[in-house]
Amino acid sequence: MSQKLRVLVHGTGFAGQGHTDAFRFGGAEVVGMVGRTAAVVSEVTEKMGIPYGGTDWQQALIDCKPDIVSIATPGGAHVEPIKQAIAQGCHVFCDKPLTESGATAKELADLAEASGVKTAFAASFRYMPEVLHAKKLVAAGAIGEPLEVECISHFNLERDIPFGWSHRAEHGGGRLNNNFTHKLSIVTSVVGEKILSIMGEVRDDLERAPIVEGVHNFKTRREHIPENLDDPELKWGESNVEWSYTVLAQLESQYAGKPVSVMFRHGGLQPRFNEDHIVFYGSEGAIYIKGHYGAGPLFLYGKDGEWREQPLPEEISADIPHIEGDTERNWSYLIRELLQDVRGEPVAPYQTFREGAQYQQLIDMIRENRNWVDVSRLN
């Protein structure tokens, strides 16, 4: 395949612009971008030098004739554009969550496989350098058999961030869709991809958020928090998603004789006291990575009973895209894998719509909150 692969991007915000840069980094040509608002599309396409801009996705598919589409809109707006792209024979790169529900996510995974198109699901923080490092250490037996994993994070998000898609389940919001997907991807990449069992509890501590017009970029939404939250004219939108979750899982691992226990604890609105972290405990040691998504540094607890910081191996440093910003670098890593696959080049396994559908079905189960045992009558 000598010519550059042609890419059409759906979404004009932080993700759409980030996907554009990542596809260009991988050697593809971004031929068009589609968004909801004509003025915003015009501004972004001019700024980024994208030749085609529009608000009609179906027409853009016809006009641009892309090889690949990039879905960079909130999860609740994914289903129909992806169906239309698959019908055109396009390969699809989609940010998380894949859709707003397990049923629609599975429908898309089945459709993509039946149509023979390639897909990539961007729960992409598994490509953090120190997560790749932990994967290498576990595979080398540095901690013996993996036994359990602990993922702890507290974000202390501003409660008055303007109301939007992140506050509504039907739009793809919630901390499970937008935090847990990355955490689960990180842990499975290190320990093992097969999820055996899961249970969880969720809680909405927010309940409402102020409605503010003109918020187009997810990354800059904090700049739009109203100055006077007591203004009687201010309107409020209702949250119907979780802002905190606790999930327990068991994973199968080729490095362990028994299922590996995993605990995910996240408080989206709660302040942190100690550092967010991910820890892999084994029969002969442990790996600690600082940061909610494993930004590092990484420490290894060995047989000498000491925690020692480990330098990032040169082969990992040389392989990751040297791009500023964790999110942008991880997109570039996964997009590079997808582009190689589409070109027919050898590539390591990466997450597809099948994993995206599995994650969404798991999130549906966790949100049901049916794991409680009533013990109120016990003496």
Rank of each mutant, 00 (worst) to 15 (best):
Lys4Ala: 11
Val9Gly: 08
Val9Gln: 05
Thr12Gln: 11
Phe14Tyr: 14
Phe14Pro: 10
Phe14Met: 14
Thr20Cys: 14
Thr20Phe: 06
Arg24Gln: 10
Gly26His: 00
Ala28Met: 08
Glu29Val: 06
Val30Glu: 02
Val31Leu: 07
Ala38Phe: 02
Val40Arg: 13
Ser42Trp: 05
Glu46Met: 05
Thr55Asn: 13
Ala60Glu: 01
Ala60Met: 05
Leu61Trp: 01
Asp63Arg: 04
Asp67Cys: 00
Asp67Ser: 02
Ile68Ser: 02
Ile68Lys: 04
Ile68Arg: 02
Ser70Trp: 06
Ala72Leu: 12
Ala72His: 11
Gly76Tyr: 08
Ala77Met: 14
Val79Glu: 15
Ala87Asp: 14
Gly89Pro: 04
Cys90Ser: 06
Val92Leu: 07
Asp95His: 14
Lys96Phe: 14
Lys96Glu: 09
Ser101Ile: 13
Ala109Asp: 10
Ala114Trp: 01
Ser115Phe: 02
Ser115Leu: 10
Val117Met: 03
Val117Trp: 03
Val117Ile: 11
Ala120Ser: 12
Arg126Ala: 00
Glu130Gln: 03
Val131Phe: 07
Val131Ala: 02
Leu132Tyr: 04
Ala134Asp: 01
Lys136Gly: 00
Leu147Thr: 07
Val149Asn: 04
Cys151Leu: 14
Leu157Thr: 12
Asp160Val: 07
Gly164His: 10
Ser166Phe: 15
Ser166Cys: 15
Arg168Phe: 08
His171Tyr: 14
Gly172Tyr: 13
Gly172Leu: 09
Gly174His: 09
Arg175Thr: 13
Leu176His: 02
Leu184Tyr: 03
Ser185Lys: 05
Ser189Lys: 08
Lys194Ser: 12
Leu196Gln: 10
Arg208Trp: 09
Ala209Glu: 11
Ile211Cys: 06
Val212Lys: 06
Glu213Ala: 15
Gly214Arg: 04
Val215His: 08
His216Glu: 15
Phe218Cys: 07
Lys219Pro: 05
Thr220His: 11
Glu223Val: 11
Trp236Gln: 09
Gly237Ser: 13
Asn240Gln: 06
Glu242Ser: 10
Ser244Asp: 14
Ser244Phe: 02
Tyr245Cys: 13
Val247Pro: 02
Gln250Arg: 13
Glu252Gln: 15
Gln254Ala: 15
Ser261Leu: 14
Ser261Met: 07
Met263Ile: 12
Phe264Glu: 02
Phe264His: 01
Gly268Trp: 06
Leu269Gln: 10
Arg272Cys: 01
Asp276Phe: 00
Ser283Met: 05
Tyr288Trp: 12
Tyr293Pro: 01
Pro297Cys: 01
Leu298Asn: 00
Phe299Gln: 00
Tyr301His: 13
Lys303Thr: 04
Glu306Pro: 00
Ile316Lys: 05
Ile316Ala: 03
Ile320Phe: 04
Glu328Val: 04
Asp341Pro: 04
Asp341Met: 10
Tyr350Asp: 02
Thr352Val: 06
Gln358Ser: 14
Tyr359His: 14
Gln361Met: 15
Arg370Lys: 10
Trp372Phe: 12
Ser376Pro: 02
Ser376Arg: 09
Leu378Ser: 04
